[in-house]
């Protein structure tokens, strides 16, 4: 069996989710900032769901310790996460447009890298970096929607992880408490939080005219 064509994959998706929704997803651009346990999972879920273009940013390389929860393979240790995830996404969803930025995101480059994304997923691991990006987007890029994550470490209840809408264009996923400095990170719970973020993207895009919905 060869790789299906773009048209075949699109038709198969449209058959299940409807032509209009498939079109809306395929015309959307979403940025994923940080490609660790959250970001690698978010990107794969969004590619599968039919998001047309992903902007992926991370400066780091795949480390052996990442294999416990991040969507990389053992033979990818040592290579840049942007390259590794691009490769994995190409195998999973060959026609998703991928733009990668192998840089450390900061105030100097947020605007340039994120300008074409309608929705931004914050998927960093350090609390300071989360705060910096969220504050920057809300202050200087008010036309964007940001979906951030805080609190997914440890083996606490999955039901403590939730999605809340903090302002018109700021959504926050996680339990809000469990810090990686106190707990290890486990694949299922990090992925749960990542899936909250990915689902929030789809729910927002699914709302009429992309108006930010009262969904949470």
């Amino acid at each position: 069996m060869g790789i299906p064509t773009k048209k075949e994959i699109e038709s198969a998706l449209a058959e299940r989710i409807g032509t209009e929704r498939q079109k809306r997803f395929s015309e959307s651009t979403v940025a994923v900032c940080g490609l660790g346990g959250l970001g690698s999972n978010i990107a794969i879920a969004l590619a599968r769901a039919g998001i047309g273009k992903l902007i992926l940013a991370d400066f780091d390389r795949v480390d052996i310790s990442n294999l416990s929860r991040q969507q990389y393979k053992a033979n990818q240790t040592g290579i840049f996460k942007t390259d590794a995830l691009r490769e994995n996404l190409r195998e999973i969803s060959p026609y998703t447009e991928i733009e990668t930025h192998c840089v450390r995101l900061c105030e100097d480059n947020y605007s340039a890298i994120l300008k074409n994304a309608g929705i931004i997923c914050e998927a960093f691991d350090k609390a300071e970096e989360k705060s910096r990006l969220v504050n920057f987007v809300l202050e200087y890029m008010p036309e964007k929607i940001i979906i951030s994550a805080s609190g997914m470490a440890g083996l606490g209840s999955p039901d403590d992880i939730r999605t809340r809408r903090i302002t018109r264009n700021f959504y926050l996923c996680g339990d809000g408490k469990s810090d990686m400095k106190d707990h290890a990170l486990y694949a299922p719970r990090v992925a749960l939080c990542a899936m909250h973020q990915a689902l929030a993207v789809l729910r927002i895009l699914d709302s009429p005219e992309n108006a930010v919905p009262e969904i949470y």
Binding site: G36, G37, D125, K126, K130, I166, S178, M180
Partner: peptide
């Protein structure tokens, strides 16, 4: 609402 971020990602 003061959102206090914690580490992990």
């Amino acid at each position: 609402e003061i959102v206090g971020f914690v580490g992990g990602g």
